[in-house]
Design a protein around this nucleic acid. Structure first.
Lengths: 369, 369
DNA sequence: GCGCGGAATGTAAACGTTTCCATATGGCTT
DNA sequence: AAGCCATATGGAAACGTTTACATTCCGCGC
């Protein structure tokens, strides 16, 4: 690190200005000189001091990702998507996850302030007030899964409503009439939207029916409890739609334990398509969310906003349509679910796939080395 | 961002030096002045320009993580561990994952060079030659899961051998005599070490036996193929030890499909304890690797090295002991496996736990929000 | 009463870039 | 042949901070 542009200039017998121009690919430098400078630079293993550079250019070539404390596949997929896009755009990724409360989140945001050209924010605490208080006006930022209606910031979100709508529609098309919905933590917007989508489809296709609502909190435990509850009922609903896969899996355990066969005695569907969903008995019908896409698109948009000189002109809210993944647990995997009328071409369909070796399913790459 | 230390100085009617001292908590500044400066700084929403700061201090307060292209829980756990430790140490985390070949990895490393105070490296390409060529002498770095014997760099790794040794020992104690081992991709060191551990235990406890080696590549597909192969054999081995959980799960599918009951007809064990392992039928006995710990400890060590003035004095190799997770698939979950004699107290044991609602198992936090 | 030491504060240099502006070197037009 | 313009290069300012060094101020011992 000791070697600077001055050393290169001296060695190449030109001025620092010329070195800078040559290395940054500016036009007005003779081809021979440029080649020579480059040769010297690589020979000396010169690497520009990025702090000095960003001091003057006011650019860090870094974007920050502010994420909540998350576990599992969702998190890693999101980062994968963001990281890949960042690399593609020539940006670095400064990551800050693992903050529990609003204070920590604010501190993390604060700490990033001078170091990034833009921010990707995914946080339960990122309501308009928080943003107002902690985010500088002139720092481009994009929200992931916005909690509330933000006016200032663009946002990308999973279209939970459309996904749940399509899934409910599918369950109804399968012939199930009484549907139980296992909800998520109260106040959780994802869960809320999924419920809304479910209700909407029911209202539309089966106006006279009232779905049974069972409490849950996104944990497998709560799904198990919900499943036990439902298993004891008589009459039972014909289908259960859980607001996420973890609960669906817990529920499946409870149903199986109670001697019920899925889908023959009761149908079951989840939301998220976590990897485990493929391996339950029976494999779980669910709604797939393309998380990596979400992250990648958010980053691309952010970089575009940055290029457009700071703050975005249009604060758009982009909805990413999830797709139905039909497996055995809904009792009708080959059925082609109708796309939601509200959003006709955003929800695609996917053929069922069960066993691991039956055909080319998306196979995670070996993770060791 | 427009507001600098000069603005604060002017507003507070002191010099920039005093502002700097006051804000950085240096001793020699009057208490009243310090308070006043701090008040002004927060009022003006002053945030120091980190590039300017690191230009002069030669510190970025950032560490870089160079990771391979990975999926799933392993990846997210690793990052969680690193991130949490970094936050604790007051460091930022610059992340760069997703590089396929050695060239990309080199480029990613190159791009980080000016921007980090230290590097966490986990890459299949990070052999001594690569390090020699691309890593500056004076940049502290730590290797995760080292591929080869590195002299220059410290390293942290999972003790694959001890884990496999303990698991094999456990299988033998369960009374299984003929054991089949499903291997990983050739050249993969994790897989290699796991096989070694298995062989070692066999050699020690059952010198006359020769384990059956079945090829695999860490994918579920390959596990499925291995399972089909073994299911057709006669006589069959009494237990199968797969080099990772994915293969064990694929294998389990094949065995079930072939009408074999696990563990009654044949026992099965994996390695990694991926989340899915809890939910297979029967739940999978496996070896748990504390990934987040691995990341966190690596970061802590790196920061310590940095504090100790650049390059570490001692290039240590720290082995993280995995623990046995005994579930139903090995046929004897309540059996207390003997710890490996070679490394007596590093491999702990864990009571079996099967269903999702039976007791307090490690429950992933709700991942939405 | 005077100098002296120490604490508090100010001044300015330095970090390594980029870039504005000036200058030199040609070739071309007149 | 003289001037002019375009092009290539160099000199130096600027970015915002930290910190070595200088300065001021004040109390205290002589």
């Amino acid at each position: 690190m000791a070697i600077t542009i001055r050393d290169v200039a001296r060695e190449a017998e030109v001025s620092v200005a010329t070195v800078s121009r040559a290395l940054n690919g500016r036009e007005n430098v003779a081809a021979a000189v440029r080649a020579h400078v480059q040769e010297v630079a690589t020979r000396l293993r010169y690497v520009p001091h990025s702090a000095a550079r960003s001091l003057i250019t006011r650019r860090t070539q870094t974007i920050g990702a502010l994420l909540p404390d998350m576990h599992g596949e969702f998190f890693s997929e999101l980062i994968r998507g963001i990281d890949r896009a960042a690399r593609g755009q020539g940006y670095h990724l400064l990551l800050s996850s693992s903050h529990g409360d609003a204070g920590e989140t604010a501190a993390a945001l604060q700490a990033m302030l001078g170091r990034v050209d833009g921010l990707l924010i995914m946080s339960p605490h990122a309501d308009p007030g928080f943003i107002e208080r902690h985010l500088p006006e002139d720092l481009p930022a994009i929200l992931l899964n916005p909690v509330h209606g933000h006016t200032r910031l663009s946002a990308l979100a999973v279209d939970n409503r459309a996904g749940a709508y399509a899934m409910t529609r599918h369950l109804l098309h399968c012939g199930h009439r009484e549907i139980a919905f296992i909800g998520g933590p109260r106040g959780n917007l994802d869960a809320e939207e999924r419920l809304q989508g479910c209700l909407e489809a029911l209202r539309e296709l089966l106006p006279q029916s009232t779905p049974q609502l069972v409490a849950g909190d996104f944990s497998e435990e709560s799904g198990y409890r919900a499943g036990s509850l439902i298993a004891r009922q008589s009459p039972r609903p014909q289908a259960i739609f859980a607001a996420n896969d973890s609960m669906a899996i817990g529920c499946l355990f409870a149903l199986t334990e109670a001697g019920l066969r899925v889908p023959d005695d009761i149908a079951l569907a989840g939301f998220d398509d976590i990897p485990t969903a493929r391996f339950t008995q029976p494999p779980l019908t669910t709604v797939r969310v393309r998380i990596a896409d979400l992250g990648g698109r958010a980053l691309d948009q952010l970089v575009a906003d940055i290029a457009n000189g700071g703050v975005a002109q249009t604060h758009s809210v982009q909805m990413l349509a999830p797709e139905l993944v039909l497996r055995a647990s809904c009792g009708m995997h080959s059925h082609a679910a109708a796309a939601p009328t509200r959003n006709p071409d955003t929800v695609s369909k996917k053929r069922a796939q069960a066993g691991p070796a039956t055909q080319g399913k998306p196979q995670p790459a070996p993770r060791h080395r």
